[in-house]
Write a protein that binds this DNA or RNA. Structure first.
Lengths: 123, 123
DNA sequence: TCGAACCATCACATAGATGTGAGGGTCAAA
DNA sequence: TTTGACCCTCACATCTATGTGATGGTTCGA
């Protein structure tokens, strides 16, 4: 599929699809005429990238963790250098912090909304 | 306490403590000489702000949710306008998405590391 | 064959969080 | 009283993710 369709199906501006490519997060092939050519798998990939960006991860980190997220890990054994693994463990840590922080605050907001609703409903 | 101590205790550059104030996330009092004066509660507050920023929330949103996170909700009933509540529900939603996305990817990274360790250990 | 609707690259602009430094007060301890 | 370590307020710089538009090529149906 071409960039326009991927853009529509992922709700992502074309500009950003090109940007993600520039950041080496996705690597579409090219048609004879130079148009980018994306296969189906890019849909999920892009959604995932956007989710991670939205969660505060920079492209630099996303670029590092994306290869680990493809189903058959087997292929990626060789390129797992010790520094790479250390980076990943560090990111894992930071992600856990993020999750904890978000969860804590989400729960607090939920509590708040709950209390407010209680106060309004019986009025 | 003054800005320097708060900075050290929270690991936050002074510059940012002033920025958070400018963004109305914290409102320290002032000493007679113009120095900012923070009480104990600002330590947790700043840590919380940083956590939320790190998790991808902009100051604009953080400013809105912070008041809901103080323990006695009771005080904040009156200022809960319908739009405000709608905003909060929307943010709740986005936070849940973020949490889901982060959790999914964290688990995937964990799996990956697990597999890599399995492959290295018995070698 | 022409126009609409795609696509390409390039470049400049913006917004938010943060870095850095200039120029200048305050205050306590030597 | 001077020095060093604080503090203040600007103001400009930087980085990352985005917006926007200029300029031009490709394709396809009227």
């Amino acid at each position: 599929m071409r960039i326009g369709e991927l853009s529509e199906r992922t709700g992502t501006p074309r500009r950003l699809l090109r940007y993600y490519e520039e950041q080496a997060l996705i690597t579409p092939t090219r048609c004879a005429n130079g148009y980018r050519d994306y296969d189906e798998r890019f849909v999920d990939r892009v959604v995932q990238i956007r989710g991670l960006l939205d969660a505060g991860l920079p492209t630099r980190i996303i670029r590092q963790i994306l290869p680990c997220l493809d189903k058959p890990h087997v292929i990626h054994f060789p390129d797992a250098t010790p520094e790479m693994l250390a980076t990943l463990e560090g990111e894992l840590d930071r992600m856990n912090h993020r999750i904890a922080c978000l969860t804590r605050n989400r729960d607090a907001i939920e509590d708040y909304l709950e209390v407010v609703r209680q106060a309004k409903a019986p009025a």
